[in-house]
């Protein structure tokens, strides 16, 4: 039986390795052909910025990990619409196509998942 796994990403891309480790779970679940979706909330939205340069931090580029998501069959990528507006970001600044959700839609998304992992 394939369960619906939702991973909620709230951490900014650098500063704490949990941002990357949440994506690693998504990629692993994708590799095992699970039904995975991702929701980026709050400062987690910064993970999706198209222009990322982590060289001076001596860290791997987080955007490259996210860019692999479609290759693992993960296309259901959602963002919190309010958080996008609060940060004055537009969807065309993001590195992947996303669907922006209202609070009510986020509630419905969480409700529809069998497992929710929150990072």
């Amino acid at each position: 039986m394939n369960k619906k796994l939702l991973i909620i990403c709230r951490k900014p891309p650098y500063g704490n390795s949990l941002a990357r480790e949440a994506i690693d779970i998504a990629l692993a679940a994708g590799a095992f052909e699970q039904d995975v979706s991702l929701l980026f909330c709050g400062d987690g939205l910064w993970q999706l910025m198209a222009e990322q340069d982590s060289q001076e931090l001596a860290l791997k580029n987080h955007g490259k990990a996210l860019a692999a998501l479609p290759l693992y069959g993960i296309d259901d990528i959602y963002v919190q619409a309010d958080a996008l507006a609060e940060r004055q970001l537009s969807q065309n600044e993001l590195l992947l196509p996303v669907k922006a959700l209202s609070p009510a839609e986020i509630t419905a998304l969480i409700d529809s998942a069998d497992t929710v992992l929150n990072f």
């Binding site: 690693d24 779970i25 679940a29 095992f32 992992l117 929150n118």
Partner: peptide, 21 residues
């Protein structure tokens, strides 16, 4: 072991509860 063990745990369990994020 690898993250596959977490994915399997999620598939096999009724509930996954996380601590410390």
């Amino acid at each position: 072991s690898g993250l596959g063990q977490l994915v399997e745990a999620s598939a096999q369990s009724d509930r996954v509860v996380s601590f410390g994020a």
